Computed example of a mutant assay.
Amino acid sequence: MPEAEPGQPGDIAVGSDGMVELRLSKFLALYDGDFGDDFLLITSERVRRSIRLVADIPQPVHEMKWTGPESRAPFVEQLREWRARERKASVLWIAEDLFEHLLDEDGAGVKLGAISYNSSEFTPLSLSQYLRIIAGTDYESELAVEGKMLSLMDDAEALVLATPALGTRCVFQHHEAEHWFSFHGPLRYGDQTVLPTGEISTLADGPGAYDRNSRLPIDGEIVIKGSPIIHRGDRSITAEHTADTYTRLAPIEDLPVVAHVRNGYIHDFTAPIPEAKRLRDTFRALVEAEPRYRKIHEFGFGTHPGCADRLRSNFHPNERWPGIHIGLGLGGYTPFHIDLALTEVEVLLDSAEAGMVPLYQTLGLRR
């Protein structure tokens, strides 16, 4: 377990009894300084057994057990009851299940943050790391970073993705990308967010859609080395299959593979060093078994300094690290959505006036 980042609460940890303290007052900033009239904690059984709840806020604190899709109806009914009484609520959802967003009308007057263990095994250690990151986030700083990043990217003609040590270069004509999304700042009423925050991303298609022929304008060679984050496509995909897929791709923590990309489509993988040949073959087998993984469906920019020390596990916050990730596939269309956090790629702003400017260094985010 890495040390907490500077400025993060150091007392969110696993105690000698294996319990994680959840002190609600530490999460006030996440909820924009206002919990509303009621606070609702929703947990699955094993998660709840690992939490020592400290309800040190003035609002009434309610709890609900989550057992799966059948728990959605009573959850929505509780929110409707509060809304009928003109009461606003904040919700923290932590469960070993797939988080499914509420309909807009059901989420009105609600701030909802979710930690999903749908794709990775729940452990008290991983939950304590989640809570450190979330409680230690400077949400106003996040919004400032987002504004500066968007301004820099707006002024740049293109983004260049380079790995000088391996002689690779790739160009992303980001102005041609159409579907942009932001996960920054505190929760406001009507918001529903999978935590932690700290990402800007663009998709080849609109929300929830997948067209095998659509493309992000990315051309060149990209070095895949860093962290794989494997998201189960739906509940029919087993935990064992998910863990096996992560294990097969986990060697990118230590070894590089080069993806050869034309117009957002991966035509081949090569091994820049002899030790990476087996990993290259793993990626080739992946796209041969499911050709839809050849398409780069997502290009994401992580901005959270608290996620800089990535865990060597299938840990969702790894994709929020201060750097880029690419996403292959989409749940419902492929068995997994596979995010690859790319730690060996330098992101450069290609500007006619300033030349090549390093994006993350300019933002002041640690690499």
Rank of each mutant, 00 (worst) to 15 (best):
R294Y: 01
G332E: 05
S313V: 03
N263Y: 04
E96A: 14
E45T: 07
H241F: 01
E105S: 11
D154E: 15
G206F: 07
E140V: 12
I273F: 04
L79N: 01
H179W: 14
L150H: 11
L30M: 13
P207N: 09
M153K: 09
V47H: 02
L79T: 02
M1L: 04
A84K: 13
E288A: 13
S116V: 07
P74S: 08
F39M: 06
P322R: 11
L348C: 07
S90N: 10
S201W: 13
L127H: 04
P228F: 02
A271G: 03
W93H: 15
D281S: 08
L216H: 01
N263C: 06
H260T: 12
E221W: 07
F172T: 11
W66P: 09
M149E: 05
F27M: 11
K295G: 06
R49K: 14
P358M: 01
D211F: 09
T334A: 05
L125Q: 15
A165W: 08
F172D: 08
L53I: 15
V160S: 11
P256Y: 06
L53M: 15
D254A: 12
A276L: 06
R294A: 06
A4Y: 00
I51H: 09
D268Y: 12
F27K: 01
G364A: 05
M356W: 11
E157V: 09
A250G: 01
D205E: 07
K225N: 12
R85Y: 01
H325S: 07
G206D: 15
G327P: 12
D11N: 15
G33Q: 15
P207K: 15
A135H: 00
N263A: 13
E21V: 05
I326C: 03
D34R: 05
G167E: 01
E63F: 06
I218T: 03
Q8H: 02
P217D: 09
E346A: 06
F301E: 06
F39W: 01
L159E: 13
D191G: 01
D211S: 11
I222N: 02
F315T: 01
R367Q: 14
A239L: 10
F99S: 04
D56L: 08
A308E: 11
E319C: 06
P272N: 12
E319H: 07
